[in-house]
Design a protein around this nucleic acid. Structure first.
Lengths: 186, 186
DNA sequence: CGTATATATATCAGATTGATATATATAATC
DNA sequence: GATTATATATATCAATCTGATATATATACG
């Protein structure tokens, strides 16, 4: 999916600044996708130049102006067209996997070269992290205003349920099988 | 983890060409990490220049020479040092998540803008793909020679078991809950 | 009262990918 | 028997993206 389509999709949930879009990537989307500021800001500028979004500057006392972008009718159309195209090429491509870079799995893979004690800490920290993630995905209380819209998307309930189930499976597996990674001699 | 450490780690399983290292990334490692040719070949050249690997050219009738790289004692030491450093900074960083770019989850997220029929195909193809993956992870028969070493790593049994459990959970969840994604009206 | 973190945009060097070039063998399809 | 597609094998590079840095201020913490 192009960065343009992705930004338009997020703006379809409501007007946002570039900073707030980044917060979505660092918050609820962090486990599925991310874009850096270096991609987000230029993308918003080009979307604005082509009238796919409009922009209102909210001057804030001495902080840089907050530029709040709103998706236009033209932008909504481009987004829907692109999403249909993306779904179609996803189907045609035959490539249904995700792109993953996992430092954790690389450390596991080469664990025989890493002291037992160190690997133990790696696994402990990963377990702690996953427990936190699980709580986050199950948490149903209030969230900051700019993250509220994405939270209330119906598809997000589906995704959160899936993520919770996957993390629970992962935690159970790791607790039952981590002894398999221990080396006899260091 | 630096590309150098990763290539050395894979060469520690046995001598390989750049092409064969790429095959490892496209095969058994594809769900955890990947590097492109544009990264692998220059990395091998620089590792060779610094004597972390040695290289034997196998001239093949009219195909480009196959350059088979072997990790040196110096290379083994660098790899172990780097792995210990990587594990330590993984622990210190506090960042235990994986880097993921999932076209599938983006399509789910924006599924309300995509026709039911199209999303149905997307989900069907993803399910088919996951079933294939599951078979691959559970398959215990023979594999091509250059992928044999990684297959026989003890840590890989752990990883394959984990992957299988996760995919099974994902498949079950999707089959039970995919109706939640349907829109009433298109 | 200094330090750390949060808000907010912008830029850019450096790293990485994805595509392409080159050359041949082999398998599949028609 | 001819054509097409796929696999082997390395190399290069434009286009893209990230991660770091610059700039400026507010707020919370001890």
């Amino acid at each position: 999916m192009q960065k343009e389509t992705l930004c338009l999709g997020l703006l379809s949930l409501g007007p946002r600044s570039g900073y707030e879009i980044k917060q979505m990537f660092e918050g609820p989307l962090s486990d599925f996708y991310s874009l850096s500021f270096g991609t987000i800001y230029p993308t918003l500028n080009s979307l604005q130049a082509d009238k796919y979004v409009s922009c209102k500057q909210h001057s804030q006392s001495k902080k840089p102006d907050k530029k709040v972008y709103t998706i236009t009718k033209k932008g909504m159309e481009l987004m829907k067209d692109n999403l249909l195209g993306d779904a179609s090429s996803y189907i045609r491509s035959g490539n249904f996997g995700d792109q993953i870079k996992s430092e954790f799995f690389l450390l596991l893979l080469f664990s025989k070269y890493i002291p037992n004690e160190t690997m133990n800490t790696v696994l402990n920290e990963r377990v702690l992290y996953l427990r936190q993630k699980l709580e986050q995905f199950k948490y149903d209380g209030p969230v900051p205003g700019n993250l509220d819209a994405i939270r209330n998307e119906k598809s997000v309930s589906f995704i959160r349920g899936l993520a919770s189930a996957l993390i629970e499976t992962g935690l159970n597996y790791m607790e039952k099988n981590r002894h398999l990674l221990k080396k006899k001699i260091n």
